[in-house]
């Protein structure tokens, strides 16, 4: 295990870099100079050994997501107007409602998609970032597979937002009843967007560089 994860010669060390977009492998060799911009010979996109400022950007995005995750969960995400009476519900209210109604499946899906997944993503990214910064080289493979999972699962957190978007267009009967998105919807979608962008910005090779 430790053999496999031990520091080995990398492409960067050997002066090779691959294009982020088309994957063409190029030899940088002596071409690295100050302020020089390398471009792919095939697709003309900018070349980097590693995604630039990856760690700083991911940190910034993850911190943003974590901060906004608090109001996203505490503030109401949806407002239902019924005969002039407004009732607000937070994400947890909705989940509790479904569990009370015996709809365990739907409750569980919403709980996983809206609470567990964002939390998992944020905590996972923090662990990855910390292990890079403090050079924790244990379980790198697990970490990288966790990262792939985070990258894949990210979009599913938007489930809640889709539900609200659908509800507010479908359930709109004037004064009788209407469903409107409440402030937390904005915060929540920002959280999801931030974590997704963080996953995109992160260069998983940094795990192995550390």
């Amino acid at each position: 295990m430790s053999d496999k994860t031990a520091k080995q010669l990398t492409a960067m060390d050997a002066g090779f870099l691959s294009c982020h977009d088309c994957g063409k492998l190029l030899e940088a060799g002596q071409m690295i100079q100050d302020r020089a911009v390398l471009t792919c010979t095939r697709c003309n996109s900018e070349l980097h050994f590693r995604k630039p400022h990856s760690i700083a950007r991911v940190w910034a995005l993850i911190i943003t997501a974590m901060v906004l995750f608090i109001p996203a969960n505490l503030l109401p995400i949806m407002r239902v107007d019924f005969l002039g009476t407004k009732s607000y519900s937070t994400i947890m209210d909705g989940i509790i409602y479904f569990f009370h109604e015996g709809e365990y499946g739907i409750g569980l899906i919403i709980f996983i998609a809206s609470v567990l997944v964002p939390l998992f993503k944020m905590i996972g990214m923090v662990i990855i970032l910390l292990s890079i910064q403090f050079k924790w080289r244990k379980g790198l493979r697990h970490k990288s597979s966790m990262f792939r999972f985070i990258e894949f699962i990210g979009r599913w957190s938007m489930l809640d937002i889709f539900v609200i978007a659908l509800m507010s267009t479908l359930v709109s009967f004037g004064g009788f009843t209407a469903t409107v998105a409440a402030p937390a919807a904005t915060y929540f979608s920002t959280v999801v967007v931030c974590t997704m962008v963080a996953a995109l910005t992160f260069d998983s090779r940094l795990l192995w560089d550390a």
Partner: peptide, 26 residues
């Protein structure tokens, strides 16, 4: 060549700052 990290703070840090401001406002 000596490869130097770019100085200054990346503009991406505005994001958490804004988030914190929003939090404070809330």
């Amino acid at each position: 060549p000596i490869v130097k990290a770019k100085k200054g703070i990346s503009p991406i840090w505005i994001l958490p700052l804004v988030a914190i401001l929003i939090g404070c406002y809330l």
